[in-house]
Amino acid sequence: MTGIVDAEGVTKGYGEVLGLNGFSATFPPGITGLVGPNGAGKSTFFRLLAGQLRVDAGTLTLLGHPAWGQGEFRRRVGYCPENAALFDWMSGEDFVTTLLRVDGFPRAEARERAGRAIATVGLTEDRLRRLRTYSKGMRQRIKLAQCIAHEPDLILLDEPLNGVDPVGRATLSELLRKLKADGHHIIVSSHVLYEIERLTEQIVMISNGRVIAQGDIHRIRDLIDARPHVIEIDCPNPRDLARYIGAWDHIASIEFSGERRLRVLTRSPEALYSALPELVIARGVSVTALRSVDDNLDAVFRYLSEGAR
């Protein structure tokens, strides 16, 4: 395995509850999204990576080092925890500067880097305010600032967009893309799937502590083509169209979802996409719109997690 992060059969339990159960995945360079519902084991995985937890079984390495314990390699890692408390009595600037000092930066450089990171997350005007006065979104952003201020090679972001307003989300998403362009590797988790989909196509899907799929979102979609794939077709005369396509082998069901709309379940969307234009030409059937309603991460996740149960 040659990923930025490699997990092989990682198991972690809390008493009788398994947080991770034989989790195996390789996280390649670039941005990788770790997606799954609440309680799937995402935060457990991040805590293992941050050295907060020790694996019960299996191996977990980041940047080639075992994840448990402290070491100099941690200066190459930035970690933005989901819900760790901040030092509320400090100002935002002091908070980031202090943690940069713990990273080993001299005072002047730490302050300069803190200023840059705080500006990057858009908190310059509020940098001297005490953290206890920060809103939830601002706290998320200052956590992100401390995570990126030392320019780590690997950035671990546990639900970074949680609590951030829509404008802030767009800004942070743009920032993450910029960090990736600058050569940083990012592992970001979220249970809000469209956020991940907008950031990267490279995902690891987790459910009940196990990886249920890994890779490019479209390739994952290919893996589940045996399952019915929902495609909506808008046309002036849906009954005529239904009569023709109902004869195709790969069509599982057809539903009239509106006066001018068909909802088709197919086991082979590619076959439908290639055959439909021929049908339009050969039979003179009019089709005004065609869309795959479940070719997105949310739908893929639902399919896969149902299959994993």
Binding site: T2, P29, R75, T98, D103, G104, Q214, D216
Partner: peptide, 27 residues
């Protein structure tokens, strides 16, 4: 999935030693 070797954003830089880092926590 294609996997390439990690490419790091920055070369390791000189940092202060353990004492200075611990002093930041003392403060």
């Amino acid at each position: 999935m294609s996997i390439s070797a990690p490419r790091y954003a920055s070369a390791p830089t000189e940092r202060l030693g353990r004492t200075d880092r611990a002093l930041a926590i003392v403060r």
